[in-house]
């Protein structure tokens, strides 16, 4: 199928992007890497009248460290994380998760921010952001300047986030992880590069796992941390945590996996992630 017709509008800065969006309203969509949006256009699942190309916005680019935070511009392509020394030093969890994200050709075009803005419940980056206590920085036509939303409040439901329809995600800020932090990113997918059936992104400051943050993806309408699971792990150990997970998690079935299967797989991944966190630093 071929995409329906649209106008293509190039924004040169955030202000222009917001102005274009205000002008074209609901009929317009931002396009970053296009790796999720263009398939939807080609399938005519979406027929926007206008696309506002944000790929040239200078405010959304770059990876840097500022005041103890790793700042990742929304337009950072997945592939750009590979071998980035700042990411390797301050948020190595992302590099553990990176090989699971799609295929080389898609990693070359798709953006970190696009993935967060889209908030696919089976995507890796939203879960990593949750595990890493990231803060999303957004802006929009109505807000005064920038809004900062912690990951715990950012993901609100199926493909639903704190981003309003006219908002832009500018960047993601991740507290730099102290040296020695333990990380685990694991997922199960039928084929290499597919979206996960279930996955887990976890981090802890040491092998005691008293403060582990364990984010699951593919188990709900959004990435999830379960306080009871983390508490059980800290206090009683992995079996109790697995039991807590089984009680707490209520995954939606997908085409090939029932809720029960996904619940079981989430438990398996939890145990494996815990093993990984406890293993070599």
């Amino acid at each position: 199928m071929k995409a329906a017709g649209f106008r293509f509008l190039r924004a040169r800065c955030v202000a222009e992007a917001l102005a274009l969006k205000a002008e074209h309203g609901e009929d317009a969509r931002f396009i970053a890497g296009g790796q999720s949006l263009v398939p939807a256009l080609n399938l005519r699942l979406l027929e926007p009248r206008a696309l506002i190309d944000i790929a040239g916005l200078p405010e959304l680019t770059g990876i840097r460290v500022e005041r103890g935070r790793l700042v990742i511009g929304a337009l950072t392509r997945h592939a750009a994380l590979t071998g980035d020394p700042l990411v390797a030093a301050h948020a190595p969890l992302l590099l553990e998760a990176l090989p699971y994200v799609a295929h080389a050709a898609i990693r070359n075009r798709g953006t970190f921010g696009g993935s967060i803005a889209l908030a696919d419940p089976a995507a890796e980056w939203p879960a990593c952001c949750l595990a890493l206590d990231a803060t999303m920085v957004l802006t929009g036509p109505h807000a005064e300047g920038e809004r900062r939303v912690p990951a715990t409040e950012f993901f609100r439901g199926l493909y639903a986030t704190a981003l309003g329809p006219d908002d832009l995600l500018l960047r993601v800020e991740i507290p730099c992880q102290p040296a020695g932090t333990r990380n685990a990113a694991l997922e199960l997918a039928r084929r290499h590069g597919d979206f996960a059936i279930v996955g887990v992104a976890a981090t802890a400051s040491d092998r005691e796992l008293k403060d582990a943050r364990i984010a699951f993806f593919g188990v709900a309408d959004r990435p999830m941390r379960f306080a009871e699971v983390e508490r059980a792990l800290a206090v009683e150990g992995v079996s109790a945590a697995a039991e807590a997970l089984a009680r707490q998690v209520d995954p939606p079935a997908d085409l090939y996996h029932s809720a029960a299967t996904k619940r079981h797989l989430a438990g398996v991944l939890l145990r494996r992630a815990v093993d990984r966190l406890r293993g070599a630093a």
Binding site: A3, F8, R10, I31, G34, Q35, V38, P39, N42, L51, D53, A55, A79, A104, A105, I106, N108, R109
Partner: peptide
């Protein structure tokens, strides 16, 4: 210099 999916790139891009 990088791989890309031709079907996921729009002409203006």
């Amino acid at each position: 210099g990088q791989l890309a999916r031709g079907c996921l790139l729009l002409a203006p891009q």
